[in-house]
Amino acid sequence: MLASAGLLSVGLGTVGATEASAAPMADVVIIDGFTKTVKESAGVPVECPAYQVLIGRSHSGDENGNTTYYCGFILIHDELVQVSGPTWSSSQRESGSFFAAPPPRALSGREHSGDENGPTRYATASMTWQGRDVHLTSYRWTAGQRESSSYSKAGPEEVMVGRQHNGDENGQTFYQYARVTLG
Rank of each mutant, 00 (worst) to 15 (best):
S84D: 07
H59G: 01
S148M: 12
N170F: 12
R105M: 13
L80D: 01
G33R: 08
K153A: 15
S108K: 05
T181P: 02
N170M: 06
E94G: 02
A17R: 15
Q176N: 06
S89Q: 05
G155I: 02
M1N: 15
T120C: 03
V161K: 04
A5F: 15
M160W: 03
V29L: 14
S9F: 15
R132G: 01
P104H: 08
K36V: 13
G11Y: 09
R121P: 02
K36Y: 11
Q145W: 03
V83K: 02
G183I: 05
R105P: 00
S113I: 08
G114F: 09
G96E: 15
A26M: 06
I76V: 04
S41K: 10
H135I: 03
G85F: 03
D78S: 14
T142N: 04
S84K: 00
A125Q: 00
E79I: 04
S58P: 06
G162D: 04
I55G: 05
G16C: 10
V38Y: 06
V46H: 04
L54Q: 05
G72K: 02
A106S: 08
N66Y: 10
T142K: 07
Y151T: 05
Q52K: 07
P119A: 10
E169A: 08
S21H: 12
P102N: 11
G16A: 13
S58L: 11
A154S: 15
A100L: 15
E47S: 13
G183F: 07
A143V: 07
V15W: 06
F98Y: 13
V159P: 01
L12Y: 08
R140A: 04
Y70S: 06
D115P: 00
R132L: 07
V83T: 00
L54I: 09
Q145Y: 04
Y122S: 01
A154H: 01
F73Q: 06
P45N: 15
L136M: 07
L75H: 10
A106F: 00
F73P: 02
P104C: 14
E147C: 03
S91A: 10
I74L: 10
K153P: 07
D168C: 09
G61P: 01
L80R: 14
E79T: 06
I74R: 04
S138D: 14
A20K: 14
A178C: 08
S91N: 09
T18N: 11
T142Y: 07
Y177N: 03
V28G: 13
E169V: 11
S149K: 12
G162T: 03
T14M: 13
S84E: 05
A106H: 01
G162I: 06
S138T: 09
G33C: 15
P86F: 06
V28C: 10
S84H: 02
E94H: 06
A23I: 13
P45L: 15
H59R: 04
Y70I: 05
S60Y: 12
S95N: 10
Y51H: 14
I31H: 12
T137V: 08
Q145L: 01
H165P: 00
A5G: 14
A154Y: 01
A50Q: 15
G155S: 09
N170C: 07
S4P: 09
T67Y: 05
H59W: 05
G13H: 12
S150R: 02
F34Y: 14
E94R: 07
Q172P: 01
Y151R: 02
G144S: 11
